[in-house]
Write a protein that binds this DNA or RNA. Structure first.
Lengths: 124, 124
DNA sequence: AACTTTAGATTACACCTGTAATCATATTTT
DNA sequence: AAAATATGATTACAGGTGTAATCTAAAGTT
């Protein structure tokens, strides 16, 4: 699994919003969120390329970046990893922890019910 | 929030199994899992103390360590953090990602249903 | 043509991490 | 008592991370 740091992920996340994109577009997208210097973001883009999380094509003097995987694919792997590390691979204890500490809203519950519903339909 | 590295967490996790405990007990517990040198574990214990994740009392020449928070408390915070970073704070998309990629077993579903059930009883 | 701006590449640098080895000292063994 | 052992403290050291600054060359501006 490609291992990304927090900052690297945030840059990639800005690219996932819409791609391919240039460095300046990514910098623009992040400008509201983060107080990062432009140089910082370029460093992170370089590291992402080096790690194989991005690819790029030259367009004149600029690079046009494309993520090398989909967001859902990446977050699924991170989630599995997380749940493995903290909850021995079982997902219910995570949800249960939220429930116990009153972190679940009615909306969360409704969404979860729908996920379960869909899963059960799938099984038939 | 106290930020722990992966290795630090694993040491703390070995302490959570049963505490208070001495360094050698912790080393013993980890000996099956990890190929860590005793010195490595002691370094990690020192870092955990420095970060405030452990406290200790002297018992003769040894230290008796105690975690400074409960496992559930720590994993809840990590979970919130994780879900915030990857799913904008919503838990259902995480579960949904698992469902879509066929990572959910019937047992998971049953456990999730129970969590929802309990939550709903709680609301009344 | 000279000057300025801009894109990416290279370099910087302190702190964190994994993974110990060495040091100082107290305790146990011989 | 001397030697070996065990405990925690200190030191080590390469690679990762956050956060840029500097360098180089191309492109745009005057």
């Amino acid at each position: 699994m490609i291992e990304l740091s927090k900052a690297e992920f945030e840059v990639l996340d800005a690219l996932w919003i819409n791609y391919p994109a240039t460095a300046s577009q990514i910098i623009e997208r992040l400008s509201g969120e983060k107080q990062w210097h432009e140089k910082t973001i370029k460093t992170l883009l370089g590291r992402l390329v080096k790690k194989g999380a991005l690819s790029f094509e030259k367009e004149g003097r600029q690079y046009i970046y494309t993520p090398s995987m989909e967001r859902a694919e990446y977050t699924l792997k991170e989630s599995q990893n997380f749940i493995e590390r903290f909850f021995s691979g079982r997902i219910a204890p995570l949800v249960s922890g939220f429930a116990k500490s009153e972190q679940l809203s009615q909306q969360d519950i409704n969404e979860l019910k729908k996920v379960i519903d869909d899963w059960e339909k799938q099984q038939k």
